[in-house]
Design a protein around this nucleic acid. Structure first.
Length: 513
RNA sequence: CGGGGAGUGGCGCAGCCUGGUAGCGCAUCUGUUUUGGGAACAGAGGGUCGCAGGUUCGAAUCCUGUCUCCCCGACCA
């Protein structure tokens, strides 16, 4: 029995799905739009996305990739060219068929039958085909390679079941598309992107991930290899947080992406594509959220420090605001994690104690409250969001001198960033089980009693085709999926848990979002 | 898309079975008193009850359709 009065009404352990919904509304991240599967991303949520964008974009550009923008509409014929790609996406396409509305005579509007498009346009679910077209125009010679492009865009996939940030019909992402002279070069790019995602997830979002190759049945439609980073959520499920694909020459054949090599012969390019999306925000929520709301890692927090003056609507407020403004300016002079500290002086009317809880729910890493007594003593009241509660169920304030608080900010924010990562990593490591060697054990492990069982790493023989289908079917009955073959896992030594054959590698098996 | 649940002031809900023109808590606004930890009291504002049809003298309530959300499943990067 705890005396703590939490800022949310639902606890993670009581109803994780409902808790997730509450964090999104309580932290003011996003709201429903009235359009199926589409959400309005509100300033705090979009601010987090802008931070992710900025940090990722820096990494992308550092790798020599250039940003472009391609159309949202793709001609149907263009989309049809790559067979398995079509098969993968056909079921979830938004299609534009008309270009004009007319009155229906009942006060409403309908698409004008006279204005039907000769060829329907599909709303991009991803842009391999249309970018492939451009690549075919842009690439002539081996000197044009590698061609490294990226775009930040929205895409639409008509999902059957949607969840805010995790799976929405429309979402925001970046999609990198590259063309190379040979497989080796393209594979190297596939891995560079994967490692970039791992670094961004771990260093920027404080999400520990496992990077590895997806099994054949989970490949991107049209890809020869699909690699992913997988993050463990607090309910033990896996979230695919980013993917990187080696597409071989499949799309090059479909779009005619060819170059003349040094010997004068025509060669098909080897292409890659890779992306991360607003789904990452869902991963941040389910990794760092607690029973008081979100906890935003400092690197991606729109405001890292929020100052709340304890205003009383009296003349002495002026001096207090001046004291806080000085504090704000001093903190803004400091740097942390390689950037100037982002600090907000929240002067909106209202009591500081009430506003504090809004910022707790939003997850600002550091909250500083300043009252008249603090000012007199040259102090501030400081609260770490990642260590919110102290003795007796009260917020764990510390009361440093103002100068001391300013000087501590560089280290404090770096500490919070590290603490969130370490907490998540320890939780993940504690929840990966490696000693399961039979299907019976696996089945028992994921039985009813074990609510948040986490992940299991097992040996397998990498079956293919129908043999793999059987394995997938077995796992499905336990609601499990193969997440990936971790790059960093040790060599397999035993026998395949599914087939009994000699194991060739290890896989991670888990329930997934 | 199948099964289940739900849409009533900003948020959370009651009312619906047994039709009679809308209520509670929180939040908001105003005032007073408070004031170092999510203030108290008093008063006030705010809703064509998701939308569209239908039944009826009369519909939040009954019927039909439709949209959206949540949970489970199927599907899926």
């Amino acid at each position: 029995m705890s005396a703590i009065r939490h800022a949310l009404s639902v606890k993670r352990e009581d109803d994780f799905a409902q808790w997730y919904q509450e964090v999104i509304s309580a932290a003011d991240l996003a709201e429903e739009s009235g359009v199926r599967g589409c959400m309005v991303i509100k300033p705090w949520g979009y601010g987090i996305w802008e931070r992710i964008q900025r940090l990722m974009d820096d990494r992308i550009k550092a790798a020599g990739v250039q940003n472009c923008y391609f159309p949202i509409f793709i001609p149907l014929a263009n989309f049809e060219r790559e067979a398995s790609h079509v098969e993968g996406f056909a079921k979830e396409m938004a299609v534009v068929t008309h270009h004009r509305l007319i009155a229906d005579g009942k006060g409403g509007l309908i698409p004008d039958p006279e204005a039907k498009l000769e060829e329907p346009l599909v709303v991009r679910p991803t842009s391999e085909t249309i970018i492939g077209d451009a690549m075919a125009r842009w690439i002539q010679s081996w000197r044009d390679l590698p061609l490294l492009t990226n775009q930040w865009a929205n895409v639409v996939r008509w999902e059957m079941r949607t969840r805010m940030f995790l799976r929405t019909s429309e979402f925001l992402w970046q999609e990198g598309h590259t063309a190379h002279a040979d497989a080796e070069d393209a594979l190297s790019e596939t891995h560079r992107a994967l490692e970039m995602y791992r670094a961004c997830a771990e260093d920027d979002l404080a999400l520990p991930v496992i990077a590895g190759e997806k099994p054949e049945n989970e490949r991107f439609p049209g890809a020869l290899e699909t690699w992913s980073i997988e993050a463990m959520m607090q309910d033990g499920k896996a979230l695919q947080a980013g993917t990187s694909h080696y597409l071989g020459t499949n799309f090059a054949h479909a779009a005619g992406i060819q170059y003349q090599d040094k010997e004068g012969g025509q060669q098909y390019c080897h292409t890659t594509s890779w992306g991360v999306s607003t789904r990452l925000i869902g991963g941040v929520i389910m990794t760092h959220g607690d029973d008081d709301g979100l906890r935003v890692p400092p690197r991606i927090a729109p405001h890292q420090v929020v100052i709340l003056p304890m205003l009383r609507e009296k003349p002495e407020d002026e001096a207090l605001l001046a004291y806080c403004e000085e504090l704000r300016a001093m903190i803004a002079q400091e740097s942390t994690l390689g950037e100037p500290v982002r600090v907000l002086l929240d002067k909106t009317p209202g009591k500081a104690a009430a506003k504090r809880w809004d910022w707790v729910r939003k997850g600002a890493p550091v909250i500083i409250e300043v009252g008249g007594r603090d000012m007199e003593g040259g102090k501030v009241s400081l609260l770490r969001r990642d260590r919110l509660w102290g003795e007796g169920g009260k917020p764990a304030f510390s009361y440093p001198q103002r100068d001391e608080a300013v000087q501590s900010m560089t280290q404090l924010l770096a500490d919070i960033q590290a603490a969130l990562f370490n907490e998540a990593r320890e939780r993940r490591d504690a929840n990966i089980t490696r000693d399961i060697t039979t299907m019976e054990e696996l089945s028992a492990f994921f039985g009813e009693e074990n609510r948040y069982p986490g992940w299991v790493e097992v040996d397998w023989s990498r079956p293919s085709g129908e043999a793999l289908d059987k394995v997938v079917e077995q796992l499905k009955s336990l609601k499990l999926t193969i997440r990936n073959v971790p790059k960093d896992a040790g060599p397999a030594s035993g026998t395949c848990i599914f087939t009994g054959n000699k194991a060739v590698e290890k896989i991670v098996v888990a329930r997934a979002y």
